[in-house]
Nucleic acid binder design. Sequence first.
RNA 1: CGGGGUGUGGCUCAGCUUGGUAGAGCGCUGCGUUCGGGUCGCAGAGGUCGAAGGUUCAAAUCCUUUCACCCCGACCA
Length: 575
Amino acid sequence: MRLSKQLFVTLKEEPADAEVRSHALMARAGFLLKLSSGIYVYGPLLWRVLRKIEAIVREEHERVGAQELLMPAIQPRELWEDSGRWDHYVAEGILFHFKDRKGAEVCLGPTHEEVITTFAKRFIKSYKQLPITLFQIQTKFRDEIRPRFGLMRGREFIMKDAYSFDATAEDMAESYKMMREVYTRIFTRTGLRFMPVEADSGAIGGAGSEEFMVDAETGEDAIAVCRATGYAANVEKAVSRISEPEAATEKVDMHKEPTPNARTCEDLLALFPGLSITRLLKTVLYEVTIGEAKQVVAVMARGDREINEVKLINHLGALNAALATPDIVKRVTGAEVGFAGPIGLADEVRLLADSSVAGVEGFLCGGNETDTHYLDVWFGRDLEQPETVDLGTVQAGDSVVEGEGVIEITRGIEVGHIFQLGTKYSDSMKAVFAPEQGKQQPFHMGCYGIGISRVAASAIEQNHDENGMIWPVQIAPYSVLIVQMRVGDEAQDALAQELYDALEVAGIDVMWDDRKKVNPGAKFKDADLVGIPLRLVIGRDAADRKVEWNPRRGDDKSVLGFDEALAQAKAFIAS
RNA sequence: CGGGGUGUGGCUCAGCUUGGUAGAGCGCUGCGUUCGGGUCGCAGAGGUCGAAGGUUCAAAUCCUUUCACCCCGACCA
């Protein structure tokens, strides 16, 4: 591609609204244009990147026999009523939905379980057709609560979604394992640093699931990892062993303590300097939506632990959980926020406890009275120990559950997510097949997603410097950039043309900066910004058939003869 | 949805407090100049100041309403 004949625009200044490097650099390099919140034009160079990612994704799916298809973006409401997800998605506000001219409600697909299940129901009738895995690469629409970070969280984005259909749970596990390998190969080929982690399955539902995380400080997800044992899990899901609570030395009667304005654990520790934070039990109030109903739930946890709302929602089978408002707190505790406790709560409140409270002795907890706490409270004596379940958030320094090791918390970007759905959708949508003998059975399904556009953004997030992007060769918009210093110089024109032709013949995609009247400095700046991995500079030594070797990453510049440069370029691209 | 903020040429912003000729830098066009890290000079094009209403002799500036966008929290590839 000759740059002089292409639309190529770069900006010196970053757009004011770019929060992360990937967004700022893509905007500066003309890769994208924001049309509206979370909605972007993908420019020609970005589109090349996306197509390269798609090509890798296609190849690796087809390698294991998955078949590509394309489902509609517009989906009828009835399908979503069948699966039972319409109300949930509408309540969350995430669904773009509208009425067609006849008044029938439709939505723009945020995901395609309903459609693929309908398709399978019609076309897969027998166990003889199983297993089958189908996939598509398509635009998804989600009216995100808060779009942000450029392509990281758009309202319209490109996603690869695959679905497996199996006769039994065991077969489904096999398909899942196969797709896990497919994902590992895909992300390895994209040149990203990534790892699979155990994950919560969220609104899509189902059992086993893992996320593929690209490690990046700007990632929105926190991940608990243990180097010693290899344990890795999203903190939404992660479990750990926590330290033992301090034992109580003496068993005195429970009594009230005045605690004016002491609303937080820090306040209370300042007030009771001798007390360990492990003998302080907090009680956090949530308003939880379960089906149509709302309920107030109080969750107890040790002072040094945080409550994990995802675990809470999953445990209760709730749609969501929000911290209770001050009005609700006042209603159920009779106190201001900060003094809630397990003793004397209103009857409407359901009391739960994180497993961290088990075994805590002689503790401090809220008094359900403003400026008052109870001290020296014992389970069994002063109140019954409530149902304890794991509702805590793993913290750095916790021990792993299996084996010996300490957990660290790192951050990552979720680029892929694989699920074992089981029969969740095939049951609700009555998608069944005839087994070898006996009654018809629902499919055992798996679903597998990759955020194509997010992969592109993650690649930049992980590979850039202060001057611009640094693309991995495999997904770079072009593999090689010929930077011609002086267009119009006969020797340079001839050598650049010869190099360009030779690279094209070798099947290497090459961009040639043959713009006239652009100063060398500007060409180098643009080259740094766009981040094509290998630059070959045609300049002052062109008359001697010399080419300058100038990779974007690292600092091993050198001057090579033409043939050597060509051979080395081929090797560079192939590696 | 709650809290905070911003809307002025294509981009980044100043001007608004204290009403009176709409500005700068970058980018763009032309001519010249320069030619290995965003050269320099001259000339030029380009703006219903987010929108609507109001106050006023006069509104980018003051008031009201509204829309969009951004940031902080719950969602997810």
